[in-house]
Structure formats: C-alpha cells, structure tokens
Simulated assay, not measured.
Amino acid sequence: MENIFNFSNELQGKIALVTGGTKGTGKAIADRLVEAGATVIITARNPPAEEKPDQVFISADLSTVEGTRKVIDKTLQKFGKLDILINNLGGSETKGGGFTVLTDEDWIQSLQTNLLSPVRLDRGFLPQMIERKTGVIIHIASIQAKLPLYDSTLPYAAAKAGLLNYSKSLSNEVAPKGIRVLTVSPGWIMTSASEKMMERIAESSNSTKEQAAKSVMDALGGIPSGRPAQPEEVAELVGFLVSPRAGYLTGTEFVIDGGTIPTI
C-alpha cells in the first residue's frame, strides 16, 4: 500500500486543542501545529503574552470540573468537532522536602491538574471522535512517571505514572473505533516552569539555583546529551505523531529525554 503525504500542509482542515498552550512546551506545540495547517485552540488560566490571529484562546482553569466543561462546550459550539487533543497541561507546585511536608491539598491539586484534567477532556471530546471514526489524543507525561524525584515532585510523579497507565488502557479501548492515543514523556525541558522549580528546590534546601539544577541532574543520573531539551524539540515529535505519517502508531509511549533514563 502506497501513501502520499503533504508534509507542508498535512493538518489542513484539522481542529486541534493544546492545553497549557500559552507558554513553554505548549506554546511550541501550538505553533508547530499551526505551521502544519491546523486551526489551533489554546487554553490556560491567563491569556498569552501575544495574541495570534491563527490561534483561538479560551481562558479556563482545567484543574476544575467547571474549567474542563467550559473548554469542551466552547470548542464544540464554535467548531462542531475536535480532531486533535494535546493534553499538555501539567506541572508541580508542591513543596520540596519529601512526603512528610505534603498535605492532602498538595496531592489533590497535583492529581487534578496532571491526571484528572486530561481524563475529563478525553471523556468530553471522544464521543464525537468515535462518531466520525477519527481523532488523535496525545498525553504529555514525564520520565518522572518511571524516574521520580521524591524530594521535590512526588505527587507530580505519581500523577504522571497514573496518566501513563490510563493512556495505554484508553488506547486499547478506542483504537478499534478509529482513535489513536499516544503518550509523550519528556525529560527535563528548559522552560520558565523549570526555572521556578529550581527556585523552589533552592529555597527548601537553602542552596543556590545552580546547586539546585545540579541536584536535579544528579537525581536523574545525568543527561547523556549534556543539556535539557528545548520546547521546539518536543513540539516536533508531537507534530509528527498527530500527522497522517504516524497513522499506524497508537498505544505507545515516546520518551524524549536526551538519554536520561538508564534502562531499556
């Protein structure tokens, strides 16, 4: 069977949603999908620093039931469908110091943001994908699902491990119905959120940001490539995975970590 793909405009006519799409990796992914011809919706609590005519912004707190419902309703009302869902929203705002300093509120907030938000969005958008027998869902997880940093991001790591398991299970259920579900697990990405994490670790350990960064590198066992990833590198992988070129890929985790995870 011979397939002919148009790489330059391969997502023309597709409607895509990128959560957490106003900065960092989410912004890079949104820009990459626009370049491929998609109409892109981005969500976050706060508007992007620069509005773009080829992107639609929906303000919402996706850690809440109300926030996810708002995004689902507004998207389907405006476009009538969603072809590509990138569950990129995630992050850790919990204190460093291990399990003893974490409260129920810390755990609940991390689970709501990193696990339940994508679960709710999938549940809201999947019915129309199944009806049309087409669609792609990408869950942005983390290598911390398998390589947790217990001193600084324990709830985040646990939530991402849950997301990884859920993503695989969902793919098995909906692949026969024409929907592809994939997971992308980045290692350390150089974003503004990474900078803030270094500040929190430094504060809790009474050290400098440079020492905090080294402690993260040491905890990860080092990065063979010698540096964190750039957001655009992750976006390029996502751009391929949602394209027709990846039509036979589903139920798989793609790790992009510069070689950080030391096992196969």
Results as ranks from 00 to 15, higher is better:
residue 33 L to W: 02
residue 212 A to V: 06
residue 25 T to K: 03
residue 175 A to P: 00
residue 174 V to R: 00
residue 107 W to T: 08
residue 166 Y to S: 11
residue 141 A to N: 10
residue 111 L to K: 02
residue 39 T to K: 13
residue 46 N to T: 15
residue 211 Q to C: 02
residue 182 L to T: 01
residue 224 P to N: 11
residue 44 A to I: 03
residue 255 V to W: 11
residue 47 P to H: 05
residue 68 T to Y: 05
residue 194 S to L: 14
residue 56 V to Y: 11
residue 81 K to R: 14
residue 78 K to T: 13
residue 54 D to W: 10
residue 183 T to N: 07
residue 135 G to K: 09
residue 36 A to D: 00
residue 211 Q to R: 05
residue 62 L to K: 04
residue 192 S to M: 06
residue 60 A to P: 06
residue 17 L to W: 04
residue 6 N to R: 02
residue 264 I to Q: 12
residue 222 G to C: 14
residue 163 L to F: 01
residue 180 R to I: 08
residue 201 I to G: 06
residue 111 L to H: 08
residue 221 G to Q: 11
residue 212 A to I: 02
residue 137 I to H: 06
residue 144 Q to N: 14
residue 201 I to S: 09
residue 81 K to P: 01
residue 243 S to D: 00
residue 179 I to N: 02
residue 37 G to P: 00
residue 134 T to K: 12
residue 44 A to Q: 05
residue 232 E to W: 07
residue 261 I to K: 12
residue 120 R to K: 07
residue 84 I to M: 03
residue 163 L to M: 03
residue 61 D to M: 01
residue 185 S to F: 07
residue 142 S to W: 01
residue 28 A to V: 04
residue 185 S to G: 08
residue 180 R to P: 04
residue 228 P to G: 05
residue 6 N to G: 03
residue 25 T to W: 01
residue 61 D to F: 03
residue 201 I to N: 08
residue 97 G to C: 13
residue 255 V to Y: 12
residue 108 I to M: 12
residue 159 A to V: 00
residue 106 D to I: 10
residue 2 E to V: 15
residue 1 M to L: 12
residue 74 K to E: 15
residue 57 F to D: 06
residue 263 T to A: 13
residue 90 G to S: 04
residue 218 D to G: 09
residue 129 M to R: 03
residue 56 V to E: 11
residue 224 P to H: 12
residue 239 G to M: 06
residue 69 R to W: 01
residue 150 Y to T: 11
residue 53 P to Y: 05
residue 110 S to V: 05
residue 178 G to R: 04
residue 155 P to W: 05
residue 262 P to N: 06
residue 148 P to Y: 06
residue 240 F to V: 02
residue 214 K to F: 11
residue 184 V to Q: 08
residue 122 D to L: 10
residue 141 A to I: 01
residue 104 D to L: 07
residue 153 T to Q: 15
residue 243 S to V: 00
residue 193 A to S: 13
residue 153 T to W: 02
residue 60 A to L: 09
residue 126 L to T: 03
residue 95 K to V: 08
residue 14 K to D: 00
residue 227 R to W: 08
residue 159 A to N: 01
residue 44 A to E: 07
residue 208 T to F: 11
residue 186 P to A: 08
residue 102 L to R: 02
residue 98 G to D: 10
residue 77 Q to Y: 04
residue 187 G to Y: 04
residue 97 G to Q: 09
residue 115 L to N: 06
residue 245 R to M: 15
residue 67 G to K: 10
residue 87 N to A: 08
residue 190 M to C: 10
residue 165 N to A: 15
residue 163 L to H: 00
residue 122 D to T: 12
residue 264 I to E: 12
residue 13 G to H: 00
residue 112 Q to G: 04
residue 25 T to H: 02
residue 63 S to V: 13
residue 147 L to Q: 10
residue 27 K to G: 05
residue 227 R to G: 13
residue 57 F to Q: 07
